[in-house]
Amino acid sequence: MGIRVAESRRSGIRTPTVVGLAVGVVGIFAVFAVRALTPALGKWSLPNQLQDLLTLSISVIVESLPFVILGILLSIIVQVWIPDRWIMRILPANPILRRGVISFLGIFLPVCECGNVPLARGLIVKGFTVSESMTFLLAAPILNPITIITTGQAFGFDSWVFVARLVGGFVIANVIGWLFSKHPDQDSLLTDRFAAECRMPDPHEHGETRWKKSIELFTRESGVIMPALFIGSLVAGLVQVAVPRAVLLNLGSNPVWSILAMMVLAFVISVCSNVDSFFILPFASTFMPGSISVFLVFGPIIDIKMLTLMRTTFTAKVLVQLTVVVALLSALIGLVVNYVA
């Protein structure tokens, strides 16, 4: 009897699996065929602005995609393959020290900011508090080897901009972590959907293999992250087409306005923290060093693409508070650098 049940269950799984695989693979080839054949139909004469909107949005997607995949992969490794005690044991028990150490996790998990979102989600599921994962999310894009090297190469390892970026990133991430750790109900900082996911005793404990858990996590995370990435990229493209750059550039030499202009630029451009130093370097001749620091501190934490991605995990209220506090703190850092440099 037991054997018969097992057999019927096995064959019940096998049929849809094969069909699913066949449909999926054919689907992939169909998309590939459409992509390969449509250029033969000739150029679309879209209006320039619409064409550029599409090019810019696709550019954000293509640039972020490898980091998102890498982030999801690392999140899978952390959630499924690394034993709980490994991560938890090396962290100090004192909450402030703990967040201090967490700020440097990015050195071992060097993912760009968009890849950090799935990773931070994974860390919450793994047992991090919400405020701890926020500290990681905000610090890791700045305190990681690639960003440190590119920033140093662009501005010099002994420059004010370099120091302001690293120290500023650390301070902001820890202040934010400390502020949100004071919230009495940590779960209420999360979206209902994600909080429900975290509350499950072990969401994947259905007697599955680790491989199956990993695949299941990949599907679930791409279901959450990809729509956010697409919408974030489209909005980032729209704003770029709509806001004339000259408006921002004219504000460059004023110590206060240039800081605001750089925040707006960082918010709009949504460029990856690993390379944003090279992007902003040409602006260094027209903008004050404090405002360049603001771009490099504020940009990796808050921009259009990041807010849409973070919205998968945190409530809108939390994101507004986060944006305001990060903006004020980075403006303060910028003013200090403008004063001393």
């Binding site: 992509r35 150029k43 679309w44 090019t55 027209t286």
Partner: peptide, 29 residues
């Protein structure tokens, strides 16, 4: 957006963006 990604032929940026970002406005290069 996905349909745009798969169907529309790839293209470079146009003069719309060149004008919007103002030619030679930064110290690039």
């Amino acid at each position: 957006v996905a349909v745009g990604l798969v169907v529309v032929p790839p293209a470079t940026l146009t003069t719309a963006t060149a004008n919007q970002r103002v030619i030679n406005s930064t110290g690039v290069g």
